[in-house]
């Protein structure tokens, strides 16, 4: 309970900063970058639930991100249905494809799963790239509309889009928090620890893994759809494998298998990349080794390292108070003795 209260401070602080930011620093460029970062965070949360909490490293998630983006783009551009309906459909389509892929992919484990999903991701990319008639191929898809009005709310301005994406990010974090802190979340973690053990305590591993996989593709799709209506132009390269490497870097730096990791990692890397603009094409010169070093020395990223530090800190405190208590007790005993003897 104590840790919950400690964390609450962080949560309220981060929320306040996110909400007040556009007023404190009314800069269109920053607003754009932050909105994009929020979109990536949603996708990273999806990946985190699967790789971080359940132990399955999916390399197909750039593909699912692209499916979400293209589903929304095609639905709004080609069929001109209502934006919100298209958003819901885009998420559902991504999840449905996720379910089909998951049904087969999850029968494999470890390396096979990683390689399998890598190939699935590549197939998705190639199909988008080559299927000219549907996706526009390398020319991409242009003219994706902004979200349509809800009553008096309009999403024409970057500011309103910022808050819309922030709303979805908060929704994502809330859902993740509730899943992780529940029996369902404990079930996922049990699968990550040992699938054999999980089975023998009565957990249907396939059913639960499929649930996680579909959920995580749902959030990848949601992020993709939001991306499409924010940037309003999409090309096949949003499904390329480099995107999944970016997402992985965000997750690893922040802390895989932690709730705050996706936000911390994405924000940090995006901020650093922005201040190192000249590095754009070479950013992997730094992030590549960073990824490797982190996994060797801090496998749970910044947030994980912070937790470990805090845990040690409190453990020390407990020890100290225990010692003091014992010291105090022995003193009182001594004193009592003296009183008796005296």
């Amino acid at each position: 309970m104590g840790s919950l209260l400690k964390n609450r401070g962080w949560v309220i602080g981060a929320l306040a900063v996110a909400i007040l930011f556009p007023f404190v620093l009314p800069n269109a460029y920053f607003l754009h970058i932050l909105t994009l970062a929020f979109i990536w965070m949603i996708a990273v949360y999806g990946l985190n639930l699967l790789a971080g909490y359940t132990g399955y490293l999916s390399l197909a998630h750039a593909g699912f991100f692209a499916i979400g983006a293209y589903a929304l783009g095609l639905l709004t551009v080609k069929t001109e249905i209502n934006y919100w309906l298209a958003l819901v459909l885009a998420c559902l389509i991504t999840s449905a494809i996720g379910a089909v892929v998951g049904l087969v992919a999850l029968r494999t484990r470890e390396h096979f799963f990683a390689i399998y999903t890598l190939c699935v991701g590549y197939i998705i990319y190639l199909v988008i790239d080559k299927w000219d008639g549907l996706t526009g191929g390398v020319r991409g898809l242009i003219g994706i509309p902004v979200p349509s009005n809800i009553g008096p709310l309009s999403f024409e301005t970057p500011l309103s889009q910022y808050y819309l994406v922030l709303f979805f990010l908060i929704f994502t974090v809330l859902v993740m928090y509730r899943i992780v802190h529940s029996l369902t979340g404990r079930t996922f973690i049990a699968i990550r620890n040992s699938e054999d053990l999980a089975q023998t305590i009565g957990i249907s591993t396939m059913k639960n893994k499929l649930l996680v996989f579909v959920l995580s593709t749902f959030f990848a799709g949601l992020a993709g759809a939001l991306y499409a209506s924010f940037i309003r132009f999409i090309g096949p390269d949003i499904g390329y494998i480099t995107i999944i490497f970016d997402l992985l870097t965000y997750l690893l730096v922040g802390g895989i298998g932690t709730l705050a990791g996706p936000i911390v990692g994405t924000f940090l890397i995006v901020a650093v990349s922005q201040s190192l603009q000249f590095l754009q094409d070479y950013r992997m010169l730094i992030f590549g080794p960073l990824l490797t070093l982190l996994i060797i020395f801090y496998p749970r990223g910044i947030v994980g390292a912070y937790y470990d530090w805090r845990m040690k800190h409190t453990a020390k405190k407990v020890k100290r108070t225990r010692k003091e208590q014992r010291y105090f007790e022995s003193e009182t005993v001594d004193a009592e003795k003296k009183v008796k003897e005296g």
């Binding site: 029996l183 404990r186 620890n193």
Partner: peptide, 26 residues
């Protein structure tokens, strides 16, 4: 799960006697 408490590790053991699902959690 070494980073978790002993109690947290054991709680999931009774999962099979419960029915709550994703919707209950969310």
């Amino acid at each position: 799960f070494e980073q978790s408490t002993v109690l947290d590790n054991v709680i999931v053991g009774h999962r099979l006697r419960t029915k709550s699902n994703l919707w209950d959690a969310v």
